[in-house]
Design a binder for these strands. Structure first.
Length: 247
DNA sequence: AATAGGAACAACCGCGATTGG
DNA sequence: ACCAATCGCGGTTGTTCCTAT
């Protein structure tokens, strides 16, 4: 089968995003969600391919992204998880709230790998091309039984560290009003979420389809990704069928 | 002060997986 | 069951910043 290109390349912008583009993307997703990445650029007026929009949102604009340096605890967790999971960056990122797979991947290649392997053998700095060639080294692939046990272990450790203060998570509020992202109270995680107060509602998208829309201003956590919400719901003992019938 | 090269980070690309008609 | 469209992941590359010489 011949794969269709991800998007029509002609006329589409590439390279670094401008603040104006960021604003367009954020405001569109706030209003309509991101049910269809391919259609999103057209509907939002962005001259980008859907893939680029998705990446920008996930790696940079998502409000739950934790900015700043990685803590020693996070770095230890990455090393621990990498030993078990290998280069499964998204799986590692899933265990580190607020961190993206891309960010973790970069940190691994720039900091942590060196920490494990020791400093470069030669005192002379290596060229970029030499570094890139060395990155092609193969990595051990663990079994799934190893993965499942270690993930639970590592995530529990990270969660425990995250919960050591009264703040469960902090949010990057650079792009949003301060009222939008108050710190989550401990009770949010321990009490069942009331059906009447669910943080989402249905909204008609520009294309006429019905989409789920989060009420950004009224909830402590907005669209951090369906995986997060589903995981949270399941952890709380919820039933996915019950959840889906509610939409 | 100039500059070469490394570090860090953002973004792109290709491909496998998943989904829906 | 099949196929096309789309998503999501991991690898790679490009760009900017920083630092040593």
């Amino acid at each position: 089968m011949v794969r269709a290109p991800c998007c029509e390349k002609t006329g589409l912008k590439k390279g670094p995003w401008t603040p104006e583009e960021d604003e367009l993307l954020v405001s569109y997703i706030q209003k309509h969600g991101h049910a269809n990445w391919r259609a999103l650029p057209k509907l939002s007026g962005l001259l980008r391919c859907g893939k680029s929009c998705r990446l920008r949102w996930i790696n940079y604009l998502r409000p739950d992204i934790k900015r700043g340096n990685f803590t020693p605890e996070e770095e230890d967790a990455i090393i621990e998880l990498h030993q078990k999971l290998g280069n499964r960056w998204s799986a590692i990122a899933a265990q580190l709230p607020g961190r993206t797979d891309n960010e973790i991947k970069n940190v691994w290649h720039t900091h942590l790998k060196k920490r494990l392997n020791g400093p470069a053998p030669s005192p002379k700095r290596r060229s970029s091309s030499a570094r890139r060639k060395s990155q092609a080294a193969t990595l051990p692939q663990p079994s799934w039984s190893e993965i499942s046990s270690s993930v639970t272990e590592a995530s529990t450790a990270v969660m425990a560290r995250e919960n050591s203060s009264s703040e469960v998570m902090s949010w990057n509020t650079d792009n949003f009003s301060s009222e939008s992202f108050s710190i989550i109270d401990e009770s949010f995680w321990t009490e069942p979420y009331p059906t009447s107060g669910r943080p989402w509602n249905s909204a008609a998208a520009v294309d006429g389809s019905e989409q789920m829309q989060f009420a950004f201003a009224d909830i402590p956590v907005n669209d951090a990704g369906m995986d997060f919400w589903c995981d949270l719901f399941l952890r709380a003992g919820g039933d996915m069928l019950e959840l889906s019938s509610d939409f």
